[in-house]
């Protein structure tokens, strides 16, 4: 009722209010931040699109001519389709593994954590306390050819591609999973934490076995967390190039590697912009479809 009062409370008020309603106040509050986002997020996105249509024969020094070069997109697609597919594939695989690893962890902390809950949660975000590049470099040590992981797998006669882990696809995936796992666990935890354990007891009381208790009660109720977690994992993973660069070879290169090298090394802005813009469009479409399908509009 009080919420309604703020919206429609003044209809037909005969006398003047002591203080006029400040209709402009929200706009004033939004102005600086909104302007910042428009100027440094929206406008750059438009500029990126414009850049993607420049004549690719120009250069930074001589400047670019706007020639509405839509062929930049066709060129990008034909040449770098494998990188695109690899990015999306790696990101999808990473997301699935993160979900499989992250769900038990979030579930254990939220429902079985007891008084250790906060400490366990701190442990989940603890990796953030140190630089992610440094941590990714540590994976180089862990997966190195004579490191204990490779030695152990050898002793167990597990076949490895080329007899090594570093500079292979599994290494890149392991790095991606490692880097983005906390992004999966935190939203999962947030939604599982709200789950009333009595609901699980009620399900048990109503003849649900543990599996049904999970699939019929816990999982559906934690769907908002699953949706948010998968998005927070998939999006950065699809755009990542650090893991492929440090833990893989050019056979593992993702679209991010191509974009950054075209922008920062080759200086081919129009093609790089076309790739970058395509990546953004692809991810936004995927996110939109996914959120619609999952039926939770209030994701974040």
């Amino acid at each position: 009722m009080s919420a309604l009062g703020h919206v429609g409370g003044s209809t037909g008020t005969p006398a003047k209010l002591e203080k006029p309603r400040k209709r402009w106040l929200p706009y004033l509050l939004l102005l600086p931040g909104g302007l910042w986002l428009i100027l440094f997020f929206a406008v750059p996105a438009i500029q990126l699109f414009a850049t993607s249509l420049y004549d690719p024969s120009g250069s930074l020094e001589e400047g670019y001519a706007m020639t509405w070069q839509f062929s930049n997109y066709a060129d990008a697609a034909s040449e770098y389709l494998p990188h695109f597919m690899r990015s999306l594939g790696y990101a999808a695989l990473t997301t699935v593994i993160c979900l499989l690893l992250g769900y038990p962890l979030a579930y254990a902390i939220a429902l079985k954590g007891g008084r250790w809950k906060n400490l366990l949660l701190i442990c989940v975000i603890a990796p953030f306390f140190t630089s992610f590049l440094i941590r990714t470099l540590a994976w180089k040590v862990i997966l190195s050819d004579n490191g204990w992981v490779v030695t152990t797998l050898d002793a167990l006669h597990v076949p490895l591609p080329d007899g090594r882990l570093l500079a292979t696809t599994p290494a890149v995936i392991a790095g991606l999973v490692y880097n983005f796992l906390p992004f999966m666990v935190l939203p999962l935890y947030a939604s599982l934490e709200k789950l009333d354990p009595r609901l699980l007891e009620a399900a048990g009381d109503l003849y649900a076995r543990p599996v049904a208790r999970f699939t019929r009660v816990a999982l559906p109720l934690s769907m908002p967390g699953v949706v948010a977690g998968t998005l927070l994992t998939f999006i950065p993973a699809a755009g990542d190039y650090i893991n492929a660069q440090l833990l893989g070879t050019n056979r593992q290169y993702m679209i991010g590697n191509v974009i950054q090298s075209k922008f920062l090394r080759v200086g081919d802005y129009p093609n790089a912009a076309a790739l970058s813009f395509t990546l953004m469009a692809a991810i936004l479409v995927l996110v939109f479809v996914y959120v619609r399908r999952a039926g939770t509009d209030e994701v974040l």
Binding site: S2, G5, G12, T13, P14, L17
Partner: peptide, 12 residues
């Protein structure tokens, strides 16, 4: 009650 408190403004 809220109108007496001033938390809500009467329409008339």
């Amino acid at each position: 009650l809220r109108m007496i408190a001033g938390l809500e403004e009467p329409t008339a």
